[in-house]
Computed example of a mutant assay.
Amino acid sequence: MKIGELAARTGLAPSAIRYYEQSGLLPEPQRGPNGYRVYPETAVERLHLIRTSQQLGFSLDTLRGAFARCETLSPDDLLGGVDGRLDEIVESMATLRAQRTELRRLRTLLLEARRAGSCAGLMKDTRAPASSPVPARKPRVPTAPLRARTARNGLAPR
């Protein structure tokens, strides 16, 4: 099947399909006599798996590694990856709950200050109480410099 049909069947743009191919997530297809890419039926399944995995929070690097080792991955390896992602979600939920609590406290302070008609002293009251600290977010460490990532994604300045 040509890239247009594959795009229609998966709901992805042809440029996204080419990106997945260039980045090693989708095997390079054969070429027809006219030079057009000819994708096998398995490409539909692979693209659905990529899309679903991304929606579940798996990075493209993680997927690339899994696909590269697909012949040697055991069910335990796959379960370990899923369990790791579940742990990340639990941690994110705890952080979001703490942020929601702190935002509600801040909102109450702001409403009280508005009712009082003054913001005097509000700044000293907006600090989080020592008893309920908001967990610090882990900083994201990019895997490649921004310029390289944007160039790889076709977003480099021209």
Rank of each mutant, 00 (worst) to 15 (best):
G57D: 01
Q22F: 01
G121P: 02
Y39E: 07
P139G: 05
A148C: 02
L78G: 00
T42Y: 01
V44W: 11
A8V: 01
R147S: 07
A156S: 14
P14T: 10
T10W: 15
G32P: 04
A128P: 13
P33Q: 04
A98M: 11
A7K: 03
S132Y: 00
T42V: 08
G65T: 04
L60K: 04
P157G: 08
D61N: 13
L146F: 13
S15I: 02
L106M: 14
R97W: 04
A128T: 14
A128R: 09
L26N: 09
A113H: 05
E5T: 14
L73S: 06
G57P: 01
K124H: 11
T42P: 02
G65N: 10
A136D: 12
L96V: 12
S15G: 01
S92F: 02
L6W: 13
T101P: 03
D87G: 07
R147P: 01
D61Y: 04
I50G: 06
G84F: 00
A148N: 03
R115Q: 14
G84I: 00
A128F: 05
L109Q: 11
R64F: 09
I3G: 06
R105Q: 09
P75G: 11
G24M: 10
R37I: 13
A128S: 14
R114F: 07
D61T: 12
N34W: 03
M123G: 10
L106I: 15
G57Y: 00
P129T: 06
A66I: 03
E41M: 06
V38W: 06
E45Y: 02
Y20I: 12
I50N: 07
P29G: 12
A116K: 09
G11F: 13
R37E: 09
D87Q: 13
T108N: 02
L56R: 05
D125Y: 00
S23V: 15
R105W: 09
L56M: 13
A94V: 06
D83M: 00
L25Y: 04
A8R: 14
A68T: 12
R18I: 12
Q22E: 13
A94W: 04
M123F: 15
R46V: 09
K138D: 10
C119L: 14
R85C: 02
I17N: 03
L26W: 04
R37W: 07
E21N: 06
A13D: 08
L155Y: 05
I3Q: 04
Q99R: 15
A151T: 10
E28A: 15
P29I: 12
Y19A: 05
I17S: 03
R137Q: 08
R147G: 01
A130G: 04
G80W: 07
T143W: 00
P40N: 04
D77V: 05
N34G: 14
R104V: 14
A98H: 09
L103V: 14
T72E: 15
R64N: 08
Q54N: 06
P29R: 09
L106W: 00
G32F: 06
L49I: 09
P29A: 11
L96M: 14
R127W: 06
P27I: 04
P142K: 04
A120N: 10
M93R: 13
G84H: 01
E41T: 08
P135A: 07
T95D: 03
P27D: 08
L110F: 15
L73H: 05
P135Y: 08
H48L: 13
D87M: 04
V44G: 06
P14C: 06
T52L: 15
Y36R: 05
R46H: 05
A98W: 12
P142F: 11
